[in-house]
Amino acid sequence: MNSTTSPLLQVTGLKKYFPVRSGIFSRVSGWVKAVDDITLQIKHGETLGLVGESGCGKTTVGRSILRLMEPTAGEIKFEGEDLLALKPRELRQARRRMQIIFQDPYSSLNPRMTIGSIVSEPLKIHKIAKGQELQDRVNQLFVKVGLRPEHQSRYPHEFSGGQRQRVGIARALALNPKFIVCDEAVSALDVSIQAQILNLLRDLQQEFHLSYLFITHDLNVVQYLADRIAVMYLGQLAEVASTEDLFATPKHPYTQALLSANPVPDPTAVSQRMILSGDVPSPLHPPTGCRFHPRCPQVMDVCKTAAPPLIQIGPPEEGHQVWCHLYT
């Protein structure tokens, strides 16, 4: 495996703008820049955590990578293949290698299909298995994710949230993908179930050598699961670093604020909360210069006019990147 030379997934300059229409003729009056120039890469077998607050474009990044939304601009290379250049037929084939797990286990399963047929459908469609072989494969998947194979003829509404999420995971695993986008995959579950699902995801990663893009707003979850973390603010990246580096030496003021807001399971710890003033600005009219400048506690004059450059912290092979004028 040439994991050092070429990444599994290379996203370059990804942009996704949504048109805002108004008036009787539905003219485009503006653009919501949900994702504005994101560049990131994911190596084989790696978990990249993507964190940020609600509405910062995390989900849009995940769905654009899978081409569930058409990106406005940018390049997505998956195993060296340009996903945006694929024709519909080729794209359907490519989808076997990348999957998604959703946040809400209640709306992600078709209420009118049994969980067995939910998991077996992709296998049938892609003609991977049929007959007894199909049945064996589905049974195997059920066991892998911790469900009982004899429950296959039941409907999703008969299961709890955690069990449904396992069905969702089994469905994502059915096509033997290399890469899975976990879109807030544990956010809707309660804490004890979260831990079970996280452990399951970690075990499956080791067993099938999966790569995850783990989208979440919960820092404890990414700390547990991710190898590297990318912090997003208002459609752009603020900081990318390995999990240890990010938690030990956060560089971007936004990351620092985010980490200080994270509850620590230690009652004696003295928390030094960094309270940000104001709200997240509208992505329809993002601030000029650095998008974080209206709320930044260390704001400088240059931040208001010039977009911050990419700064490498430490040796490049550590890959600690920050977009901030403080370090120029």
């Binding site: 989808r95 992709p122 892609h126």
Partner: peptide, 17 residues
Amino acid sequence: EQDYVTAAKALGIPEGR
């Protein structure tokens, strides 16, 4: 807009189906 339809799309299930 339901997730199960997005999931079906992500699985490469044809549109008619």
